[in-house]
Design a protein around this nucleic acid. Structure first.
Lengths: 353, 353
DNA sequence: AATGTACATCGAAACGGTTCTATAAAATGA
DNA sequence: TCATTTTATAGAACCGTTTCGATGTACATT
């Protein structure tokens, strides 16, 4: 009735408990015969080691902690959700489980530490997005590997999976220039986020490369947040300018969508009067009207890479801090160019229930 | 340097280890003074019990297992992903972690059992969607509580969170009738899924209630799967009929979208020539053109309710098998009626990066 | 006054593994 | 051939909790 323990296996196989442990974990020396005898009993009895006993003895949990900011993990927030799911996929392949925790926007000392850290229930940590550096300090004190996703800290280096924001910005600006635009504005919010800052920097660089003067009045980074509404507000200000820009590069899709709403509301035409490009390629961008030109970020891939990097660190005790920049892909749609091939509707494998 | 153990706390507080355990778990008898003394030391030392040690001693894991079919958990499949996230939310509130596993479409005996079951690493199981009943049998042998989401087994009762499919179908048909349609077709795939079968049944009931003959040639349930492409195929067949129906009720949004594509492709007008209604309210439905009239299923709520039911069973050892039917909500959009209030665009709090 | 019951605390036995050390046999090398 | 080294196995300590008696008190009940 009860599940068999390692002792049962040892008894049946006529060997010691430690030998069984060596066999099932495949480490140390055992003779071929013993190994086979033990494995046979293991099969017969359907033995499988209990996780908590293993955990206690070996000080490992088989779990990975995934931390993100609570306001980033909501139904209305598709970006990090996708990253998380990517981590789930990869963890399953590597025989780890993912425990999820969220942390408040501003970190309140020992209150906000995820339970899985206090309980020593994870072997490594992934932190996705911008969190308080003080929080990362606290996490570090637990002495387990950490991988950051889409975030960097000035003070210290961490293993991290980043988006190639500059290259993306270059692609976007290049594309808008190729469409004939000379006056390209930039819209951004929460510019303290390293990713958004890099996108602005890439925009600057590319314009300079083409000997186009970067006009401060066409760079609107006043908004505290990069949501749709903030994009609309920024766009409203840009429309006041004389002459107004002929194209807008927004730091992310949410703001780009806000820009589009504002432009259409003012009776202007897209992309005729003003072209718009975003960054991220969230779900909505390919479904709205007009569809948004943007830089596709491979969100699941961010999560997957983070897990693989972290598992390497856990298993090999790697102390090397790898930094990976994931490439992005320009998706040209109607918001920036009138003529676009309609190869976008790759939704045929959707299914539900 | 090392994290304090319960022994350290006992020593500092001048009492036994068992007393400390009683205090931190808040069970059994302790004097007020001892309790306070112990708690003080706990704070000072920053003591927190280790999960695996607790697990081993108490035979609990603090985890919940969430199982769904692998083809239901993919990037292109938004439905169960949302259910899973709902479970995550609820589990965090109840101090549990969720471990995720997927199982193949057809279950291959002991091969496919989730690792967390074999390792005894979960205190309860949630199974979402249609899986092999033989698989459920296997899971049951582990003797832990099980809650089913959106699935039922003929043979045996389980605690389950279900969608009120019949009521939804009634609402949909009522709505189409109210729009003046007399000839309403039904499109479904994978009709062995209890949910889809119920939607068909609800459709039948409501027509009969209105003394409208149910026409078998207008019920297309040949497709083996309920994906977009299958909806298009079924719709193609329906368009061959004379006279053709003036409205279509699809068993889910994916198929409804397929129907719409097929109808538009045939140069017909929606909803002028044919009205379409779906079921589920997936993301795409409110973003496409024309926006799809459908029944909103509260996907996160399915996950949340399942977790809460399961946690009750785990904690109270409840043997009562509750069955909950979650209500659905009719969302009327342009695919069924020309005039619709545009209150749908509640996307303003979207944000990314 | 004897007895029962609720309260308080402790010691020790699990819980089910991993891992370190010891011991012995077998293989290797000079 | 003898000294090493490698291979093979067993035994026991240990991991950090929970929980089960055992042992007392103190208080209420009859």
């Amino acid at each position: 009735m009860k599940r068999p323990t390692i002792k049962d296996v040892a008894r049946e196989a006529g060997c010691s408990v430690s030998t069984v442990s060596i066999v099932v974990n495949d480490r140390g020396y055992v003779s071929k015969e013993t190994r086979e005898r033990v494995m046979k009993v293991v099969k017969e009895l359907g033995y499988h080691a209990t996780r908590s006993a293993r955990g206690l003895a070996s000080k490992t949990s088989g779990n990975i902690g995934f931390i993100l900011r609570d306001d980033h993990f909501s139904q209305a927030e598709p970006f990090y959700t996708r990253v998380f799911l990517g981590a789930e996929f990869a963890a399953r392949d590597r025989n780890f489980y993912v425990l999820l925790a969220t942390v408040g926007r501003q970190f309140s000392e020992r209150k906000d530490l995820p339970r899985f850290l206090l309980e020593r229930n994870v072997d490594g940590i992934i932190i996705a997005g911008k969190v308080s550096p003080r929080f990362i300090d606290q996490v570090e004190r637990f002495g387990i590997p950490i991988v950051l996703i889409d975030f960097e800290v000035r003070r210290k280096r961490y293993a991290s999976i980043l988006i190639d924001n500059k290259a993306g910005a270059h692609l976007a600006v290049d594309h808008l220039l190729a469409c004939g635009h000379k006056s390209i504005a930039f819209v951004g919010g929460d510019i303290l986020h390293p990713s958004l800052a890099e996108r602005l920097e890439g925009y600057r660089e590319k314009l300079q490369e083409h000997h186009i003067t970067v006009q401060d009045r066409w760079i609107d980074i006043q908004e505290p947040d990069s949501r749709i509404a903030n994009g609309a507000h920024a766009m409203a200000r840009l429309l006041q300018q004389h002459p107004r820009p002929s194209a807008v590069f927004a730091a992310n899709d949410a703001m780009a969508i806000g820009c589009i709403q504002q432009i259409l509301q003012n009776g202007l035409n897209i992309p005729g009067d003003i072209a718009v490009a975003g960054f991220d390629d969230i779900e909505m961008s390919s479904l709205m009207q007009p569809r948004l030109t943007t830089l596709r970020v491979f969100k699941e891939e961010l999560g997957r890479q983070a897990v693989e990097t972290l598992v390497d660190m856990i298993k090999n005790g790697d102390t090397m801090l790898v930094t990976k920049h994931l490439p992005v892909e320009l998706k040209v749609r109607e918001s920036s160019c009138a003529k676009v091939s309609a190869d976008e509707h790759d939704v045929s494998q959707h299914s539900t229930t």
